[in-house]
Design a protein around this nucleic acid. Structure first.
Lengths: 228, 228
DNA sequence: TACTGTGAAGCTATTCACAGCG
DNA sequence: CGCTGTGAATAGCTTCACAGTA
């Protein structure tokens, strides 16, 4: 393994999806002053099995020490690098309803690795407002703003009916990573990644499991002891 | 449990996770007045392969007609029933910051199958406010309110530091389905389902793929033709 | 010794390809 | 015929169990 070892494109998707959890667990440990963890401890912290964690980390390289564990700071650094969070990715959010507003506020402070560089909305009453320290621009200027500010990731928080159009315009000016909060499937050309976050899908999955739980377990009233 | 044909607990998780998408696709088709679809068409609408769709639907039963396809209304009805959306599940949202506010507004109108019956916050300035047509209660009354209003699904939109406590209190009064928006892993006993929605995880996954795309494809400037 | 990294096994999910049926 | 439903093949992921090592 040399420097950046031969552009490892062989990391499984399932592993990539867990790396952020490991990174968060490592950050927590680092804040608590922990310097070293075993796979068992880190796995517990991240909510996975230790064998799974070790397999995942083995895809990144050999960063553990047998008989000891992993050095927290070093492993966090390696995962940060692998995820591409050593730099700040410029993000644009389109659609500043309740959800877009919340996303702007959240991204404005909570997340390392990303920087919100544009907020865009269609409503003339919203354009010009300041949200999370940034002035909302007009979605009509999307192409210019995305290009000028080198936006790499587009976040779509518009109603479903507008989402495909916004997506197409992002893609047309070179954005190849899209996070979609609208309740619809987006069509994109080869090479563009779309991830969908959908509240109602998540609730519906919970409802399915809730419905299929044993009725007996559903009688919960006797468990309660109301505080005086 | 009889009535529901042979308590089919054998529906794979991956299939359950796609049923909401099929349901949405079917709703769209129904609104457009389409009465019947082939697996090919419905799969395209939902963004999956047709073989995958047919396999998924086969877990629910045999609701198609060979040589013809699926009747839109009937299939939508079957999926609705299977997901447990024929009834309305009572939902409580805890934490009414920007995100909780957005969730309350979204659930207040957009979703069938769920009804927000409680909004709770810890901040005395927020308690008593009206959000999405509902008065915010105090998180101190969580046990009483959850019990009285028969809450089945708890939505946690608090800061990470409070999430585990809120979750424990939900579980203690019998809630067994939790949707967690806080950036932490929740520990729950056997029989309780937690689903996590995490914006920064999603962005980090996009960043990983963005970073691993070919540098050549990253030169997007020449593609732009600025509107005059 | 106490742990990691990994071959091998087992399991789950997807896709192919076609028999079977309206 | 044209489509669904499904056996069989394939691909991908997780877990076991232990050899290897600081």
């Amino acid at each position: 393994m040399i420097a950046d070892p031969a552009a490892r494109q062989d990391i499984p998707d399932a592993t990539v999806a867990r790396l952020p959890q490991y990174l968060r667990a490592l950050s927590d440990l680092a804040e608590r002053g922990v310097a070293s963890v075993s796979s068992e401890e880190l796995a517990a912290e991240a909510g996975v099995r230790s064998a799974n964690l070790r397999r995942d980390l083995s895809h990144l390289g050999s960063y553990g020490v047998r008989g000891v564990g992993y050095e927290v700071e070093m492993l966090a650094h390696e995962i940060t690098r692998e995820l591409g969070l050593a730099q700040d990715w410029p993000v644009a959010i389109v659609g500043l309803g309740n959800l877009g507003h919340a996303l702007a506020a959240y991204l404005g402070l909570a997340t390392r690795g990303f920087q919100v560089v544009a907020l865009l909305d269609r409503d003339p009453d919203v354009v010009g407002q300041e949200i999370a320290g940034m002035i909302v621009g007009s979605v009509g200027d999307l192409e210019r703003i995305v290009t000028e500010r080198r936006v790499a990731i587009g976040v779509i928080a518009t109603p479903a009916v507008s989402a495909q159009e916004v997506c197409d315009r992002f893609v047309a000016v070179g954005v190849r990573s899209v996070l979609n909060f609208a309740a619809c499937v987006l069509s994109v050309p080869e090479g563009v990644d779309v991830r969908k976050v959908d509240l109602s899908t998540e609730l519906q999955i919970l409802a399915f499991h809730e419905q299929h739980k044993t009725p007996a377990a559903q009688e919960r009233m006797p468990l309660l002891e109301v505080a005086p």
